[in-house]
Design a protein around this nucleic acid. Structure first.
Ligand SMILES: [Zn+2]
Ligand SMILES: [Zn+2]
Ligand SMILES: [Zn+2]
Ligand SMILES: [Zn+2]
Lengths: 168, 168
DNA sequence: AAGTATAACGTTATAATGTTACGTTTTTCT
DNA sequence: AGAAAAACGTAACATTATAACGTTATACTT
């Protein structure tokens, strides 16, 4: 009997990719960002790239002023505007998302596919997973349309406990 | 042939209740709040009541410091803590909601029924409608559960153009 | 009714988050 | 090379929110 060999790709986003090579993950995110910027003909300058790299150091939301502190290490003289300008760029080009409930930012796993994210946020460990539930989006759009409302942007941020943290 | 007489009550929440008696609407909201507080055995003090009344002056989100300015009229000596403490109380008892994307607050139309709101927010006129789409809630909870995530709170804020503002 | 505990509020200071305005440098385009 | 636009530096400031501590009002017990 042939062993069942589930292809990795068949899994849709899990909350925390188990046993996940984050160095690789971060590297890939930066590569994807570079490619996307080339396509869009916009400039991922060293400063912007460095901010994006800092954001991708983990899967937890980062606050602007934390980012600023970390940016200062390689970049003394950085001030709030420095960070906010980079963030504005990254947001505008869908390389990061803003988590409104946290005043924080997180890397986007699927740039190039314009979307406002849907997020699961673990209260305990702070890990965030981004969903892409088109049914959900659809349902919202339809209900809104039923009320004569035309949607142009949605913020969906779900708090709770991730699988790991529930065991605690 | 008898005229069709659609009962008003059959309509579920519209975006902006057409030709709506807001004085009455505000009064009713305050009465509901009083009742709810009695039930919960908590105190809707004059200060808290006044803040709630200010919040209910319209169906648009209010910012804390605007609230503060307006509160000062009848209540000189009010300071940020004054407002934030009242807001904390009102939030805790589900008499108002916080709109995370706006750092603003809005009265809750259905206190006593614990829920995190789903909001439609018109970018142009600023009017907000609160939805109670249980299917939506259900769908989110289920998808999260599928990822081992246990939901305890959701923020859903949808921006766009309301029916009135689309005509412009 | 007096005494005690708790909740609400006053007061001051400060922290955290985000923006404006303006000038200089770098990059792009002709 | 020269002009235009984008990116960045710099300083000041605006907005949003909380901490800490003391006082007053309310509720609860005896
Ligand atoms: Zn990773
Ligand atoms: Zn967790
Ligand atoms: Zn009304
Ligand atoms: Zn409108």
């Amino acid at each position: 009997m042939a062993p069942i060999n589930r292809p990795e790709k068949a899994r849709t986003s899990t909350f925390l990719p188990a046993g996940h090579d984050h160095i690789q993950c971060q590297r890939q995110a930066l590569r994807a960002a570079e490619q996307q910027c080339q396509l869009d003909k916009v400039r991922l300058t060293p400063l912007r790239r460095e901010v994006l790299e800092l954001i991708w150091q983990n899967h937890r939301p980062v606050k602007a002023y934390d980012l600023l502190d970390r940016l200062k290490v390689n970049h003394p003289g950085a001030v709030p505007t420095t960070v906010y300008r980079a963030l504005d760029f990254l947001l505008e080009h869908d390389l990061v998302h803003r988590l409104q409930s946290l005043n924080a930012f997180i890397g986007c796993g699927t740039p190039g596919d314009p979307h406002r994210g849907q997020f699961l946020i673990c209260r305990q460990c702070g890990t965030v997973a981004e969903l892409q539930n088109t049914d959900l989006h659809q349902q919202i759009t339809e209900q809104a349309a039923g009320l004569g409302f035309q949607v142009d942007n949605e913020t969906i941020e779900i708090f709770g406990a991730c699988a790991d943290c529930q065991r605690t």
